[in-house]
Amino acid sequence: MSKKKKQDRPAPETLQLPCVGVESHAHLDFKPLAEDLPAVLARARAAGVDRLLQIFLGPEAYRNGVALFEAHRNVDFAIGVHPNSAEQCTDAAVAEMEAICREDARTAGRMKAIGEIGLDYYWDRVDPAVQRAAFAAQLELARGLALPVVIHSREAHADAVAMLKDLGFAHRPVLWHCFGGDLDQAREIVAAGWHVSIPGPVTYAKNTALREAVAAIPLQRLMLETDCPYLTPEPWRGTTNEPALMAFTAVEVARCKAMDPAALWAATGETARAFFGLPAC
């Protein structure tokens, strides 16, 4: 969090959420979070975050970053080649990710998902055909490893849904990361048996369609995330995001669902634990 605190920016621990929350999507190996990781994780625990899922964007990111988390056993992992780097999803990269996952399964047991993977038509950085090939290859990797999938879909909803269904992933463990869609998209995701993770922008004033969707998503399909260091929720928008600030997202999601924030926090944490196979508190 920014050192330049303002009087109207309460600390997340003042929300007094119980320490049962699960941060389902963080990039803790990115700057500046990696440079201050013990303090970042301490602030997360003070705010009620019990466990976190660290997303490694490919095998090189895993090799370079996994040692950061050796002493932080409440951080588990996912690995996948992002669609904006889909040209890096070679056969060799997929084979290396498989080897990483299988070795982890024999030893640490911290690799919980394949992701974030999917399609991104917003940035137009990689040919859509290349993205689709990388997506399909990594879905097959997840199937072979019997791991859940974390989906990145930006301005590619219809194609992402179609590919998942065509490849047999309806009613399999699929999490729609950083959901920013509308009610119809949320209903389509839920009908396919998938889960939805809600990020900080649900707190932004203009995101009425997202709040309408959140209100309609069944509680047992909901998780929370930061996607830190990006997408900081209000009232800390404009600063570096970090897991502690997920508490403010929880309060807004609870408001959308007419729930007590502590109950929402606990329920989304339990959903994440069941989905990723995380230990109980």
Rank of each mutant, 00 (worst) to 15 (best):
M1S: 11
M1F: 08
M1I: 08
S2K: 07
K3E: 15
K4D: 15
Q7C: 09
Q7N: 14
D8V: 01
D8M: 02
D8P: 00
R9Y: 10
P10K: 09
L17H: 12
C19S: 07
E23R: 10
H27M: 08
L28G: 06
D29E: 07
L33D: 03
P38F: 03
P38H: 03
L41H: 06
A46F: 04
A47R: 01
D50L: 12
R51A: 08
R51T: 13
Q54V: 00
I55A: 12
F56I: 06
F56Q: 08
L57R: 02
P59Q: 03
R63E: 15
V66W: 00
V66D: 03
V66F: 13
F69G: 00
R73N: 12
N74E: 15
F77W: 12
G80Y: 05
G80H: 07
G80V: 05
V81T: 01
N84I: 13
S85W: 10
C89A: 15
T90E: 06
D91V: 12
A92K: 12
A95P: 00
A95T: 13
E96A: 04
M97K: 06
A99N: 13
A99S: 14
A99M: 12
I100S: 06
R102P: 01
E103K: 14
D104E: 09
D104Q: 04
R106K: 15
G109C: 11
G109N: 13
A113E: 01
I114W: 10
G115F: 02
E116N: 09
I117C: 05
Y122A: 07
R125G: 00
V126L: 01
D127G: 01
A129K: 14
R132Y: 08
R132L: 15
F135G: 09
A136V: 14
A137F: 07
L139F: 10
L139P: 04
R143Y: 09
G144R: 15
L147D: 04
P148N: 10
P148A: 08
P148M: 07
V149Y: 05
V150H: 09
H152M: 06
A160Q: 11
A160C: 15
V161P: 03
A162Y: 05
M163Y: 03
L164H: 02
D166S: 14
G168R: 01
G168L: 05
A170V: 09
A170I: 09
H171E: 13
V174E: 07
H177E: 02
G180E: 03
G181S: 11
L183F: 10
D184L: 14
A186P: 06
R187H: 14
A192N: 15
G193N: 08
W194S: 09
V196T: 09
G200C: 07
P201D: 11
R211W: 06
V214T: 02
A216N: 01
R221I: 00
L222G: 00
D227T: 00
C228T: 12
P229R: 10
T232E: 01
P235R: 11
G238F: 09
T239F: 04
E242G: 09
T249P: 13
V251Y: 01
V251K: 13
R255E: 04
R255Q: 12
C256S: 03
K257P: 04
A258Y: 00
D260G: 02
T268R: 01
A272I: 03
G277V: 08
P279K: 11
A280S: 15
